Amino acid sequence: MVLPDLLPELLPLTIPSPSQGVWYVGPVPIRGYALSIILGIVAAIWIGERRWIARGGRSGEVTDLALWAVPFGLVGGRLYHVITDYQLYFGEDKNPITALYVWRGGLGIWGAVALGALGVVIGARRSGIKVLPMLDALAPGVLVAQALGRWGNWFNQELFGRPTDLPWGLEVSPDTALAAGFPVGTTFHPTFLYECLWNLAAFLVVVWADRRFRLGHGRVVALYVMTYTLGRGWIEYLRIDDVQMDDIFGLRLNVWTSIVLFVVAAAYFLISARRHPGREEVVRRADAGDDRGVREAEEPTATE
């Protein structure tokens, strides 16, 4: 028997979806979507803390800023989703209160990143921390958070791609397939898995580039945006979920968003490298009133 004959037996026929996305401990619901988001937040804080200490920051400062960034990010992510998909919540036979039901899914990454970054800026300024070094320390961990958070879509059986006969096609429940307008038994591109793998690969690229070239002055953030949008653009193109403001000159809203953000991030990266080569030597403001954190930035460690 030759290897090609064995491939159908070695490869999975499909990727099954979970039979349920909610479990109960007594009256308390434990939701797969929420667990994915929480696990991503924990991973981002842990990675960010290690990178921040390697940059010359103090232990615990990332956790302190998370008290600002996480609530801001959740609100921003939900606002972006509700604004771009408002037809799901407002209009005839719609209940606007469901716009608050975050546990059903629906967090727009760009809203989460924008307001989450605003939360970091507010917390950093209150703590005497320079904003750009902190954002550079946090950015790679956000990619890991996004990778883990995407599994929430798997639990909710949402945001999958076009039908496919590939061996890793995603199974969904009969009701989900019919609601999407396809026959029962259709399998779909597992876009949650594609984005998870892309984000993890982008994390490795960004961390390597930061270590190799000692990026600073916001260039790690710019590289994060560039690597993420490269993947998000083609993955978004595979998705079939309805989005308000879809098909703008033949492309989905989030594809256009990815294109614009990639161009802006690339321009910032180049301008910043020309104006501010190298990396910041201190991570706290001179007027912070505490010089314990003002010291030469250390080389990134092997565990960064």
Score class of each variant (00 low, 15 high):
P8C: 11
P8L: 09
P12Q: 05
L13Y: 10
T14P: 02
I15F: 01
S17E: 05
W23P: 10
V25W: 15
G26F: 09
G26N: 08
P29G: 09
G32F: 09
G32T: 10
A34V: 15
I37K: 04
I47K: 04
G48F: 13
E49C: 06
W52K: 05
I53G: 03
A54D: 13
E61H: 03
F72A: 09
G73C: 05
G73Q: 02
L74E: 01
L79Y: 03
D85E: 14
Y86S: 10
Y89R: 05
E92Y: 15
D93V: 07
K94F: 08
A99W: 01
V102T: 05
G105F: 12
G108V: 09
G108E: 03
G108R: 08
W110A: 02
W110Y: 15
A112N: 04
G116L: 00
L118W: 04
V120G: 00
R125S: 13
R126M: 13
I129M: 14
M134K: 07
L135Y: 06
G141S: 11
V142W: 03
V144L: 15
L148E: 03
N153T: 11
W154H: 07
F155Y: 13
L159D: 13
P163K: 01
T164R: 01
P167R: 04
S173L: 12
T176P: 02
L178D: 09
G181H: 10
G181F: 13
G185Y: 14
G185I: 14
P190R: 04
T191N: 04
Y194E: 08
C196N: 11
W198D: 04
W198S: 08
F203S: 02
L204Q: 05
V207A: 02
W208K: 06
R212I: 08
F213A: 04
Y224A: 00
Y224G: 04
R232P: 02
E236Y: 00
D241R: 03
Q244C: 03
R252T: 00
N254S: 05
V255E: 06
S258F: 06
I259Y: 11
V260K: 00
V260T: 14
L261C: 12
V264I: 15
R274S: 15
H276W: 10
E281S: 07
E281L: 06
V283E: 08
R285D: 14
R295Q: 14
R295M: 11
E299R: 11
P300I: 03
